[in-house]
Design a protein around this nucleic acid. Sequence first.
DNA 1: CTGATACATTGAAACTGTTCCATCTGTTCC
DNA 2: GGAACAGATGGAACAGTTTCAATGTATCAG
Lengths: 369, 369
Amino acid sequence: MSNVRQIASKAGVSIATVSRSLNNHPNVDPATRQRVFEAAASVGYSKANSLRTGASTVIALAYAGDVVRADYGGFESAMLAGILRGVNERRFDVCVLSLHRDLAPGESYARLLDRKKIAGTILRVFEDSRHVAEQLAGTGLPSVVVADRYAPTSGVNYICCESRIDSRRAVQHLIDLGHRRIALGVHSVRDTDHVDRRNGYEDALRENAIPLDHSLVSEIVASPEGGAGLITRLMSSSEPPTAVYFTDPMATIGALRRCLELGIRVPQDLSIVGFDDSDTRRHTFPSFTAVVQDAEMLGFEAARWLTRRLANPGDGALQTLQVARQTRLEINQTTGRPPKEMCRVLPDGTRVLVSGPQLVPGFVQDQGK
Amino acid sequence: MSNVRQIASKAGVSIATVSRSLNNHPNVDPATRQRVFEAAASVGYSKANSLRTGASTVIALAYAGDVVRADYGGFESAMLAGILRGVNERRFDVCVLSLHRDLAPGESYARLLDRKKIAGTILRVFEDSRHVAEQLAGTGLPSVVVADRYAPTSGVNYICCESRIDSRRAVQHLIDLGHRRIALGVHSVRDTDHVDRRNGYEDALRENAIPLDHSLVSEIVASPEGGAGLITRLMSSSEPPTAVYFTDPMATIGALRRCLELGIRVPQDLSIVGFDDSDTRRHTFPSFTAVVQDAEMLGFEAARWLTRRLANPGDGALQTLQVARQTRLEINQTTGRPPKEMCRVLPDGTRVLVSGPQLVPGFVQDQGK
DNA sequence: CTGATACATTGAAACTGTTCCATCTGTTCC
DNA sequence: GGAACAGATGGAACAGTTTCAATGTATCAG
């Protein structure tokens, strides 16, 4: 195994300087630090795996950007619960990190994690930080991305939940019920998951020769306020939809609440398909039809794989993990036939019957038989 | 500062044996390990504070028992979010631990945390594990309990939220509206928080000379199912209450949902006061009147105090933290006057008018004027 | 009972990484 | 021009962990 003395001789400095460089102490010449970094990389140095100082048994739940608040009904808290369960088998501990908070100038993510004696990482990446996973994949530090996916050749390990197919099925379910004006409320962050759901929505429309109406597609904040605001806006518009697909649980909760507030009956006046990461769909009234992914399971499997891999470095079967689970579509009480008579509902709750031309006749009544 | 050599000479063993003992390696004679533990305690040894190996900058969120799942709408996830925000000032990291999982036979909690190089802990204790905080308080390891309280003389640091006064005010609010048959759905775990809320309920009844009716007090699981089940049971009983106070958010959510399901109008048929740790009360319909504590703030303040204390060991002002914040009572849309005519609502939703003798005449109609 | 074997226990020594302290160097300020 | 200072560095001391060999003890076949 490599050690600081090897790095020192390779970089032509003392071991004290190596230690200072690797730990980002002040008063090290940037050029020297750079040389040390390169030497450390060339000998494959890792503090976490160092034999004499005790192998680390801590894995990180690392956020490529800021730590995302483990929010109510949210993906993060369910996933963390799964991770905490998943590390028990091998008795690893979990440390929650924000990668950018402590990153020193010129330091790589792998070195930051090594400095913190992290043996492996479960990584959460976002639209603008996908590259972090690719950087980490090239290093000796085992890591796995949760809820995003990469090319098989990228070398990035991941476990995600494919939601495009069930998003298509969800919209198809609405179409089968007779809906034609189907709106989409999609999270404004364009990560893989939400792009999948948008694609699934578009797939279903295309397959049924329903033209995509851009006025029915809205990027919203994944929060109750986002969902509620979209309901208000859509239902007061001159030509409201008869169904909406929300791609995240919090927006769905807010939408259902606003419907109750405005007296919009679900599903009699408006059908709603939501998205669920855990059990949220069963806690609303009515229980909402949802594309469901199991965030707890994703966290559990990521943590179990990572800790098994760390415990058995030689096991070839554990070298890579590139898995896409499937979501499932659960039909509950918020989807039904479109209304016979279309109503606008103004923000104050007054209902305005939408007359002739704005309705799409044939469809609504015929398909709903 | 003390080191393994001091311990070795004190215990009459080699430093290798000290190291093995402190790290719970197998093949150490239990009697020897015991001697080493005692010697380590007598010289006040701490690995996390050891100068030459670098002071640890990791604090633990330690659960005295199992890690509690950071659940939907729950206290844990909001608190964790606060902790993660609170450590940023001093750039500490957070490790989530279950104290009992890795505790070796004969090992103290302080030594376990030291073995994991934890500089300080934020502790979650429960009814049967309050003693863990007292054990830790006697050691050199800084710790703070969140959401429970101890005697000032115990030496245990804590930050909690006092909910008895606002629980009393919440029930008083119901009484002021004219309610007399007020039920209580309290979490079956008898931690300080829930005992407070139960006491507040009893305080209000006593002050208003309303006899405590044990059939109206139920210990339930703090879950939507618990809340829903209680609504079904209470409302189908021969003499239903006109108001219920639920002492946790998830039970409140479930109760509101069941009311919508059974056609129980809130607050026209039944008033509900709930409890909220974050923003849940605003995500239901109707928004529920609640005793509100800010779990995120508790986590934030605990983490900020702990990390400041670790960064400034000499600062006398940071030596102890024994703080009780106040909850607040937020009146929303689920509390109103009691109904003029009392109805039982059977589990299938049928309504049965409750006639004469079972009503408490004078009260319901007179007070509601 | 005896000898062989296995295993638990232990200490000395080797080893890894961190920090203290002295030194050297270049810069700034009178 | 020299004193004062700060940045950068290496040697040495140090803290803690693990390897390896030695020792003692239990077990078991004959």
